[in-house]
Design a protein around this nucleic acid. Structure first.
Lengths: 242, 242
DNA sequence: CATCGTTATTGATCTGGGTCAAAGTTGCTG
DNA sequence: CAGCAACTTTGACCCAGATCAATAACGATG
């Protein structure tokens, strides 16, 4: 899961190098993984793995977006994270998954047998260090999201989400290019702890206020970035400290 | 942070052994820490460190409870975690803290200079593995809490919180013994994304319904555990899978 | 043990966002 | 390109929980 939508540095070869070990690559260590990996593609909307299922593999997202979510008995659903390229599905040391994982778009995974991966974690210190760093990053992002879920208004939640999408896009994409919402209104709602109607109303309201325009229901451009950032409820500089 | 309130296994000597390395103790490795540690006590209600402060130490909670929280400009506060004995304050690899840390009760910390701790993480593989496991546990707990914050009703939030306190107590404490609420109504509210009035009303309502009794505003006994668990909104078995 | 500040309870009222319902879009698929 | 299914918008209404306010119960202190 990677709330900030920033893709980590990767050396572009094997998926596991994206984040797990890259920048400290050692061909010998990594060649251990060569025999173990297999690829799998899951179609948009299909489940990848259900909560409680045995976790035979640890996978890395190669392309596409997956969601981590929990659904209560009566159908209320909360998305607790989005998995973007280089994010992992499954944790070493856990036998089962604790959340449902679903393909939000078509998703390609690079999979490693869990047992072998766990052995690798024990044998290669770089890997546990990298997984530790990733888990700490995710933890921070999750806590940040807890503030949003527990205390922000609908308007602030939407603004935070949009700002996050824009921040992610602004690295690779040129100015002027419209941004793409990777989720439906309902998925956004389940991510923000709202209903789809409220999401729709707030987006309309921001459109009316001249903060955004939509070219189509998935594509938008920010007209007033300052207003957008103001509306997030966060510190002026976007969470960083002065 | 340790939402489930379960204290991890510890060998009872140095605080860092509580969770960081215990079960894989190696006297030689750990003796590296002997010279580095220092103890500090913070009085109830006092700040331990503020968001944005430079993190000169990584600390382990020896006794007491601390809270991790974020406050928006207008005063809305969300507690994103409680730190119990054996939990860490600060992460290797981060220069500043991202949340305010406050002593909920008197707190004693065992502190290590951050740089030395980071060196230890690099040098001793057991430690990064243990920190990795801890971070993954915390991450899971944080995501579980996101479901509560985003989707549960006030009644379900309170029931979940009480059930958590009871679960933590039930290991060491004998049946019949009243449980102790470690937080004020306001702190509970800030942890659950509610107001203190709603917390108070829900507790009164559960008292009226015969689920709980209070002997004093901090001490309570559960009269109907089944009803309490029903009220959490979670699966019957408390989150585990059948 | 009276006083005072803090914490908790309870009541009255308000409102943001949920719920229910009805159109309006969009994009497949035959 | 018609017809349908999935998604989105918008409106009307409602209610859980927030807000505002008054009172009560602690518990520390002199």
């Amino acid at each position: 899961m990677n709330f900030v939508f920033n893709e980590r540095d990767g050396c572009g070869k094997c998926p596991i190098r994206h984040r797990a070990v890259c920048a400290r690559c050692d061909e010998d260590e990594l060649s251990l993984l060569e025999g173990m990996k297999s690829y799998k593609t899951i179609a948009q909307g299909e489940p990848i793995i259900w909560r409680g299922d045995d976790m035979h593999h640890i996978s890395s997202v190669v392309s596409g977006i997956a969601s981590l979510s929990r659904t209560l008995e009566d159908g209320r659903t909360q998305v607790v994270g989005l998995l973007l390229p280089s994010d992992f599905i499954g944790s070493p040391g856990r036998e089962t998954v604790d959340f449902d994982v679903t393909a939000v778009t078509d998703v390609t995974l690079c999979r490693f047998e869990r047992k072998s991966f766990e052995k690798l974690v024990e044998d290669v210190p770089h890997i546990s260090q990298r997984v530790m760093e990733m888990a700490l990053d995710e933890l921070n992002a999750a806590r940040e999201w807890m503030v949003l879920l527990g205390r922000k208004t609908a308007r602030e939640k939407i603004a935070t989400f949009i700002e996050m999408v824009v921040r992610r896009d602004n690295v690779p994409v040129h100015a002027g290019e419209p941004h793409i919402l990777p989720l439906t209104r309902e998925e956004i709602a389940n991510f923000l702890g709202l209903t789809l109607e409220t999401v729709s109303r707030q987006l309309s309201s921001m459109k009316k206020d001249g903060v955004l325009t939509f070219t189509d229901r998935r594509k938008f451009t920010v007209l007033d970035l300052a207003a957008l950032q103001d509306a997030t409820g966060d510190d002026a500089d976007g969470g960083m400290i002065v």
